[in-house]
Computed example of a mutant assay.
Amino acid sequence: MTVVVCAGDEFISADLLAGALTEAGVEAEFRRIDTAWPTEPFGALDGVREAAGDPAKLAELVRGADALVTHLAPLTAEVLEAGRGTLRVVGVTRGGPVNVDVPAATAAGVLVAYLPGRNLGAVAEFCVGTMICAMRGLPAAAAGLAAGRWDAAGFRYERTGLELRAATVGLVGLGAVGLRVAELLRGFGSRVLAHDPYASPEDAERVGVRLVDLPELLAASDVVSLHARLTPETKQMIDAAALAAMRPGSVLVNTARGELVDTRALDAALESGHLRAAVLDVFDPEPPAPDDPLPRRPEVFATPHLAGASRQVAEESAARIAREVATVLSGGRPTTCANPELLA
Score class of each variant (00 low, 15 high):
residue 198 Y to A: 13
residue 44 A to I: 07
residue 320 R to C: 13
residue 287 P to L: 09
residue 7 A to P: 03
residue 301 F to N: 14
residue 33 I to W: 11
residue 6 C to P: 04
residue 287 P to K: 10
residue 47 G to R: 15
residue 319 A to S: 12
residue 291 D to N: 14
residue 12 I to Q: 11
residue 321 I to W: 05
residue 229 R to L: 08
residue 328 V to K: 05
residue 43 G to C: 13
residue 117 G to Y: 01
residue 206 R to L: 14
residue 97 P to L: 09
residue 195 H to Q: 11
residue 197 P to R: 11
residue 253 V to A: 06
residue 7 A to Q: 08
residue 6 C to Y: 00
residue 189 G to R: 00
residue 128 V to G: 05
residue 312 Q to M: 14
residue 87 L to Y: 05
residue 1 M to S: 06
residue 45 L to V: 10
residue 182 A to K: 02
residue 250 S to Q: 00
residue 328 V to Y: 04
residue 217 L to E: 07
residue 102 V to F: 01
residue 197 P to Q: 04
residue 64 G to I: 08
residue 318 A to C: 10
residue 154 G to H: 15
residue 247 R to C: 00
residue 152 A to F: 14
residue 9 D to F: 08
residue 175 G to C: 00
residue 311 R to S: 15
residue 244 A to Y: 03
residue 310 S to Y: 13
residue 200 S to I: 05
residue 49 R to C: 10
residue 53 G to D: 13
residue 158 E to N: 12
residue 239 D to F: 01
residue 178 G to H: 00
residue 342 L to V: 04
residue 66 D to T: 10
residue 75 L to G: 14
residue 244 A to T: 02
residue 160 T to K: 15
residue 341 E to L: 04
residue 26 V to K: 02
residue 61 L to Q: 11
residue 303 T to H: 09
residue 249 G to A: 04
residue 16 L to A: 15
residue 287 P to Y: 06
residue 234 T to D: 01
residue 109 G to Y: 03
residue 235 K to S: 14
residue 74 P to F: 11
residue 68 L to D: 07
residue 129 G to P: 07
residue 112 V to C: 11
residue 57 K to F: 00
